[in-house]
Simulated assay, not measured.
Amino acid sequence: MIFDSLDVSYGDMWGSQQGTAHSDPMPRAVAARRHAAGTDYAVLLSARERPLALAEYWPRRMWRLYLFDDRSWRVQMIDLKQHGTGMLLAHRNTRWQFSGEQEHASWKWDVQETTTVSADGQVEVRSEFAGPGASVPEGVPVRRFAAPLESFLCPAPEFGEWQVFAPFLAQQGHEPAAALVLSDVPVDEGAGPLRAAGIEQLFRPGVHDTPNGQAAVEPVDAGLLRITSGRLAVSDPGWVGEDPRTVAVPRGDFPVTLSLVRTPHATEVAAARVTFVDVPPRAWEMALRPDEDLGLLGGGQFYGVGVDTGTAAFLDATRTVDEDRLDEDVFVPLDSRFAVELPGTRSGPNLIAFRAGRGDGAYPVWIGRTDDGQVGCVVVDFRLHPAAGGE
C-alpha cells in the first residue's frame, strides 16, 4: 500500500493497538507538554482507517515502535535508543508470525525473529519457533554479521516530526509517498484532568439510581486518626514506605468516615474521608506530589493513590508498619469488616485501613479547602457512586 497522508492521534502508552484512534485520545497540546517534560505518551499513525504504527515515547528519550500488517495485526516491535551520533538506533527489532486470527488474539506466535544491533553495527538475528509456554527446539538458529550502521539509524524526532518513522512502515509493505502529509485526528482540546464533582454526595445518606439499579449510600464512622507530624499520608498499607501521597494538615485526632454503597448484591466502600474542619469545603483540588503537573494529564485523567492489596489507609506520614503482621492485623480482619485500626503507642500515630472499592487500581485523592484556604478534609474516591469523579 502506498500512502501520501497519515492520521495522527495521541494517548497513553498501551492506549490503542487495534483502532485508528486512541480509545481515550489526548489533546495534542498535552502530548507536546509530555514530550517536553520527558513523560511517556504514544502516537498512533493511521492511513485509510487502518493503523500502521504506534510509537511510544519512553523515559530517557527512547522510543518503541509497533508496526501493523495489512490485517491490522500488531506483528513487529522496534526499540530505538539514543546513539552517540545524536540519532536513534534501532537496536532491537522483533517480528512475529501467527498461524491465524485466534492465535494472534491469544498471542500464540509460531515464529519470533529478533534482530539485535550493537552501537558499532554488529548484528545478531535469532529465530525461535512455537508459542510461549511450548518447548523451543535445541539449536535455535542464530546469524551474526556486520552491517552498515547507517541502515539502522533514524533522526530523533522533535514533537510532531512523525515523518521520521515513515521509512519503518515499509517493513510491513506500507510505502510512504515522497511528500507525506500529517493530519491530527480532532480531539476536544477543552477536555482536561478529572474534576472533583459530587464528592459531597458520596457521604450523603439516601437511595440513588445507578446503571445497576438502586443503591443506598450509608456513611459510617471508622474511628479517629491521630496526626502527630502535620503530614497525612494516603497509601496502600502494604506499600507505606514507597513514597506515599501526603498532605499538610493540622496535628490532632480527626474522624474518619467511610461511604458504604449497598446494593442487593454487595456492600462496598465507595469513598473514605478524614475531616479536619467540620465545615463544607468551598473548593476541591487534587492531591499532588511536587513532581506532578496537571498540565500533563489528558481528559479525565488523574494522579492518585495506587492500590495493590485491595486496601488503602490514612496514616501519619511518620507511621511505619510491620509487614510481617499485615495479614494478621489488616488483611484478614478486613475480610469481615470495612475498616480496621492499627493503634500506635500512647502518644504515637495510628493507622486506619479500609477496603478499596472493588480492589486494586489507582484512585484520586481530593483535598477539600475551606473559605480561608485551610484543609477541611481529604477524600479518597473509589469511583463507585454514580456522582463520584465528575465528568
Rank of each mutant, 00 (worst) to 15 (best):
E103S: 02
R28C: 07
R92M: 08
A42N: 01
S229L: 09
W58T: 05
L67A: 01
Q82Y: 12
S46T: 13
Y41L: 01
L149M: 01
D243Q: 11
V30H: 04
W73F: 09
D322C: 00
E161C: 15
P290H: 12
R33Y: 00
N350T: 09
T263A: 07
R355I: 03
S99L: 04
R346C: 02
R71D: 03
E175I: 07
Y57K: 07
E323G: 00
S72P: 02
F168Q: 12
G373D: 05
G230Y: 11
A313M: 05
L54Y: 09
R231K: 11
G133W: 09
A42F: 04
E101R: 03
S336Y: 06
P193T: 12
A179E: 15
P280G: 02
S23K: 14
F276S: 03
E161F: 13
F159Y: 14
A197T: 10
L182F: 07
T345S: 14
F354P: 06
A272S: 09
E113K: 14
P264S: 11
R143G: 00
L260I: 04
L44W: 08
R195P: 00
G198N: 03
P176K: 02
A362C: 12
V142M: 08
G213H: 04
G173L: 01
T345P: 02
V111A: 13
F3C: 01
W73R: 07
A178S: 12
A21L: 06
R143L: 11
T267L: 06
E323L: 10
S99K: 08
N212H: 00
Q76G: 10
W107M: 05
E268R: 10
G390Y: 09
R95E: 10
R282G: 07
Q97D: 06
Q17D: 14
A215L: 09
E285K: 04
Y57E: 00
A178V: 08
G295N: 10
L65K: 08
P386V: 05
A32Q: 09
V305M: 11
L315I: 01
W107C: 00
G100A: 06
G223V: 14
P211L: 06
A196F: 11
P193H: 15
A130W: 14
G173F: 05
D293F: 13
L180H: 13
G348N: 01
V249K: 12
R251F: 08
F254G: 06
L351N: 13
L202D: 11
S106T: 01
M77E: 15
D188H: 05
T275A: 03
Q201P: 01
L54T: 09
D79K: 10
H208T: 02
G238A: 09
E175H: 06
E328R: 01
P255Q: 12
G160Y: 15
R60K: 05
D243C: 12
D236I: 11
L202R: 05
G84C: 12
G344E: 02
G357F: 07
P219A: 10
G230H: 12
P290Q: 06
S23Y: 15
V43W: 03
